[in-house]
Amino acid sequence: MAIPVNAATNAYASAAKLLQQARPSALNQVAEAGQGDDFAKMLGQAVQGVVDSGKVADTKAMEMVNGRGDMVDVVTAISQTELAMDTMVTVRDRVISAYEEIMRMPI
């Protein structure tokens, strides 16, 4: 089963749109809570980095489809995107785990 290259482009565009929508509300709320400004910036930059690496991988894939790209560049870009995504998922899981542990602490 082949997935159209446009599906990947649409997925990255959707992720970028969600990031732009999340910044004004959720990330600003974290920043307004106190010392969270640096964390909110770091989180936004990390998500933007994943979106950017996805765009690079998509661009490399489109170049290869058009006959101007190199397979090694495509595989490298996809691997970097996969690593960035895995890192973000791991960080998310650790943050959720830390939050759950804090919620279990007795007051």
Rank of each mutant, 00 (worst) to 15 (best):
M1I: 10
M1A: 09
I3Y: 09
I3P: 04
I3G: 05
P4E: 09
V5D: 13
A7V: 05
A7P: 00
A8H: 09
A8Y: 15
A8G: 08
A8S: 14
T9M: 10
N10Q: 14
A11D: 14
A11L: 15
A11N: 15
Y12R: 04
A13N: 15
S14E: 11
S14V: 12
A16C: 12
A16I: 02
A16K: 08
K17N: 03
K17S: 12
K17V: 04
K17G: 03
L18R: 11
L19T: 06
Q20T: 12
Q20W: 12
Q21P: 03
A22V: 08
A22P: 00
R23W: 08
R23D: 03
P24Q: 02
P24W: 07
S25E: 02
A26Y: 14
Q29P: 01
V30F: 02
V30A: 00
A33Y: 03
A33E: 03
A33C: 01
Q35L: 10
G36H: 06
G36K: 00
G36N: 07
G36D: 03
D37W: 06
D37H: 06
A40W: 07
K41L: 14
M42R: 11
M42Q: 05
M42D: 11
G44L: 05
Q45L: 08
A46F: 06
A46D: 09
V47C: 13
V47D: 08
V47F: 10
V47H: 04
V50Q: 05
V50L: 14
V50E: 10
V51Q: 02
S53T: 04
V56A: 03
D58T: 13
D58R: 07
D58Y: 01
A61T: 13
M62N: 07
E63H: 10
V65R: 03
G67A: 02
G69I: 01
D70C: 02
D70I: 06
M71F: 10
D73R: 06
T76V: 06
I78Q: 07
Q80L: 14
Q80Y: 07
L83R: 14
L83F: 10
L83W: 03
A84F: 07
A84H: 05
D86R: 15
T87L: 09
T87Q: 14
M88T: 15
M88S: 09
M88C: 14
T90Y: 13
T90R: 11
D93G: 03
R94Q: 15
I96P: 03
A98T: 05
A98I: 07
A98N: 08
Y99Q: 05
Y99R: 00
Y99M: 02
E100V: 15
E101Y: 11
E101L: 07
R104D: 13
R104I: 08
M105K: 09
I107R: 13
